[in-house]
């Protein structure tokens, strides 16, 4: 049987990029994304014992990520000073993005910026969609009904498309 640490580390290895992207889409900047990612990892660690296997581990973790991200927004407003300190501490981690050219980098930045301009829940929904989650999974993770999720995703796609076109022009 795998120990808690093994399960946790396996999860980290497998999902670190997905989780980071979700955080980056939500916060809109790398320093806050890393802080949020740590907060989510900490919660996953703390609640890993209560994981019963009723859903997949990834869905369960995404659910924790979603809830943590939503509570993080409020907390962050109260901790501006602390954030500044943390940003300084995080400089030791290098940026490992795989961006072959400037055009792609720009496209990626524009996308993340546009997503960060959406409503809080919408940022998470589109993040999950871009990670390849199905509508059903997104509904399960966010707690929305499947029909509402579909409607919402369509609306978010339109909004995002509009924002990106506006930014291009």
């Amino acid at each position: 049987m795998k120990s808690k640490e093994q399960v946790f580390r396996n999860y980290y290895t497998q999902y670190k990029d997905k989780l980071y992207r979700l955080c980056l889409g939500y916060t809109g900047n790398r320093a806050d994304a890393q802080d949020l990612q740590q907060e989510i990892l900490l919660r996953i660690w703390q609640h890993l014992d209560s994981f019963r296997g009723e859903s997949s581990l990834s869905s369960w973790c995404y659910r924790i990520a979603t809830n943590t991200a939503l509570s993080y927004a409020g907390k962050q407003k109260r901790q501006q000073d602390k954030q500044e300190l943390l940003k300084a501490e995080l400089t030791h981690l290098h940026d490992h993005r795989v961006l072959p050219n400037a055009e792609q980098e720009e496209a990626s930045q524009r996308l993340y910026k546009a997503i960060a301009g959406l409503k809080e829940t919408d940022r998470l929904i589109i993040g999950l969609l871009l990670e390849g989650c199905s509508y059903k999974e997104i509904a399960h993770i966010t707690g929305l009904s499947p029909s509402n999720t579909g409607v919402r995703i369509n609306r978010i796609k339109k909004q995002l498309s509009k924002k990106l076109t506006k930014n291009e022009g």
Binding site: D17, H94, Q104, S108, L111, L130
Partner: peptide, 18 residues
Amino acid sequence: ELKNWQQSWQQEKAPLPD
């Protein structure tokens, strides 16, 4: 459009030390 977004989205990786 969604496919393009997915491509741009997935280019970001979690930072690791060199």
